[in-house]
C-alpha cells in the first residue's frame, strides 16, 4: 500500500514540475487510478460491495471521465501546450518540498487513526491537498486550475477513505458527483472564455466589464 501512496505523491510532483498541460492531465488520471486501486487494497475489501463500488465509480470518474473532458477542452480551446506558471517550475518544485516537510511534520502532531492503511496516508493526503492549493494559486490557465482543484479533491478523498467504514456510501457518491459536475461547468466555462477572449488566462478575468 505504501507503494501506491508514494506513487500518488509522485504524480502530484509531476503536475508541479511538468511544463506541458497534457502531461499534467495524464498525471492526474494516473493519480485517480492509483486512488481507486488504494480503496481495494485492504484485506476483505473485494468482498465488500461498498469498497468495490466506490473504487469502480471513482476510477470511472477520476481516470476516464474527467481527464477525457479536460483533454477535450484542451483540444477545443486550441491553446498552447505550455503551463505558464506565475511561479517558475523550479520554484514550484522547491515549494513542493517545503509543503512535503510541513505535511510530514504536521501529520506527526495530528496522529489520526488510519487503521487499515499505513500511517503514510495522512502526510500524503495533506501534501496532496497543499499541492492542489498551490497549483490553484500559482497557475494562470483555467485548465491548470481545474487540475489543481482535482488534486485538492484527491487529497480530501484520501482523508475520506480512512473513515470508509463509518462513512455512508451516499456521501462519497455525492462528493464524486459534485466533482464531475464542477469539472463539467469549468469545461464549459473554459470553452466560453476561450471563445470570447481567444485565451484561457484567468488573470484577464479581472478586466471583465459591461460592454459599452
Amino acid at each position: 500500500m505504501e507503494w501506491v501512496l508514494i506513487g500518488i505523491m509522485l504524480t502530484a510532483f509531476v503536475t508541479l514540475g511538468s511544463g506541458r498541460l497534457s502531461n499534467c492531465i495524464r498525471a492526474v488520471a494516473l493519480q485517480g487510478a492509483l486512488l481507486s486501486l488504494l480503496v481495494l487494497l485492504p484485506s476483505h475489501s473485494f468482498s465488500d460491495s461498498h469498497h468495490v463500488f466506490l473504487a469502480t465509480i471513482s476510477f470511472l470518474i477520476k481516470t476516464i471521465a474527467i481527464p477525457a473532458l479536460l483533454a477535450w477542452s484542451l483540444k477545443q480551446a486550441k491553446i498552447k501546450q505550455e503551463v505558464d506558471p506565475t511561479i517558475s517550475l523550479h520554484l514550484s518544485l522547491l515549494w513542493g518540498g517545503i509543503l512535503l516537510v510541513g505535511a510530514f511534520s504536521g501529520a506527526k502532531v495530528v496522529s489520526l487513526p488510519t487503521a487499515p492503511f499505513p500511517f503514510l496516508i495522512i502526510p500524503v493526503a495533506i501534501t496532496i491537498m497543499f499541492v492542489g492549493f498551490f497549483l490553484l494559486v500559482s497557475r494562470t490557465k483555467a485548465l491548470t486550475q481545474v487540475i489543481g482543484f482535482l488534486i485538492l479533491e484527491n487529497g480530501i478523498f484520501l482523508f475520506g477513505i480512512t473513515l470508509i467504514g463509518e462513512f455512508p456510501l451516499t456521501v462519497e457518491m455525492g462528493v464524486l458527483l459534485d466533482l464531475l459536475v464542477g469539472v463539467f461547468v469549468m469545461g464549459i466555462m473554459i470553452y466560453h472564455i476561450n471563445k470570447t477572449f481567444d485565451h484561457i488566462d484567468t488573470k484577464a478575468l479581472t478586466l471583465l466589464k459591461d460592454s459599452e
Binding site: 505504501e2 508514494i6 505523491m9 509522485l10 510532483f13 514540475g17 517550475l89 523550479h90 518544485l93 522547491l94 513542493g96 518540498g97 512535503l100 516537510v101 510530514f104 501529520a107 506527526k108 499505513p118 500511517f119 503514510l120 502526510p123
Partner: peptide
C-alpha cells in the same frame, strides 16, 4: 537541467521523510 536536479532532490527528500515516518 536545474529543474531536473531539483526534482531529484525532491525524490531524495521524499525518501528521507518516508524513512523518518516509518
Amino acid at each position: 537541467i536545474p529543474q531536473f536536479l531539483i526534482a531529484n532532490f525532491m525524490l531524495a527528500l521524499l525518501a528521507l521523510l518516508v524513512a523518518l515516518s516509518t
